[in-house]
Simulated assay, not measured.
Amino acid sequence: SLGALLAFELAHELQALGCPPPVALFACGTAAPTRREDYDGGKWREPKSDEVLIDELRTLQGTPEEVLANQELMSLTLPVLRADFLLCGRYVYRQRPPLRCPVHVLGGEDDKASEEQLLAWRQESVGDFSLEIFPGGHFFIHEHEARVLGVLSAALEPHRLSA
């Protein structure tokens, strides 16, 4: 989720500097920047306790229970995760000219980002748009790694340099 927002903001900064557009922007597992409020309802604007973060990780089903139960590991991980959640929760969309690159969005059918929130990425670029929905939740990329890599490869194939 945070990676999609960072990539989106980086693409806008590059465009503002007059750089060539990226070959493509891939956004995975998160609502479009204009739909962030709908996505989390402002839940992550303020820091949460370790317990709330661990409950969220458990809900997202991407972290093994053995990891969540390891206090030493969690004491190292939770500050970073807390910062990630705060960055996402405090993100503010800024209206700018649309990007000039294709936008490819991937989502999990059981993730909290709805199809409507994923489709809203379409308005962020004048380039091509695609949406791929996979079975599973937020971490569908792990469950369907081969298919996800296939989608990425297919989107990048036209830009491959000949040897």
Rank of each mutant, 00 (worst) to 15 (best):
L2M: 07
F8E: 08
L10Y: 04
A11N: 09
H12N: 08
P22Y: 09
L25G: 06
F26N: 05
F26S: 09
A27W: 12
T30Y: 01
T30P: 00
A31Y: 06
A32H: 09
R35A: 13
R35P: 05
E37L: 09
G41I: 08
G42Y: 08
K43S: 13
E51N: 06
L57C: 03
L57M: 13
T59K: 11
G62P: 02
G62K: 02
G62Y: 04
T63P: 05
P64V: 09
E65C: 01
L68H: 01
N70W: 00
N70A: 01
E72M: 02
E72D: 11
L73E: 03
M74N: 10
T77Y: 03
P79A: 06
L81S: 00
D84H: 00
F85Q: 00
L86A: 02
C88K: 00
C88L: 10
G89K: 04
R90N: 12
R90A: 01
Y91F: 03
Y91S: 00
V92M: 07
V92E: 13
V92Q: 13
Q95Y: 01
L99C: 15
P102L: 05
V103T: 03
H104D: 13
V105R: 13
L106C: 15
E109H: 13
D111M: 04
K112S: 14
K112P: 14
E116C: 02
L119F: 03
L119E: 08
R122G: 08
R122H: 14
R122M: 04
Q123W: 04
E124G: 10
S125Q: 08
V126N: 11
I133G: 05
I133N: 07
G137W: 07
H138Q: 11
I141R: 01
I141Q: 11
H142C: 12
H144K: 07
H144C: 03
E145D: 12
R147M: 03
V148L: 14
G150Y: 07
L152Q: 02
L152S: 03
S162M: 14
S162G: 12
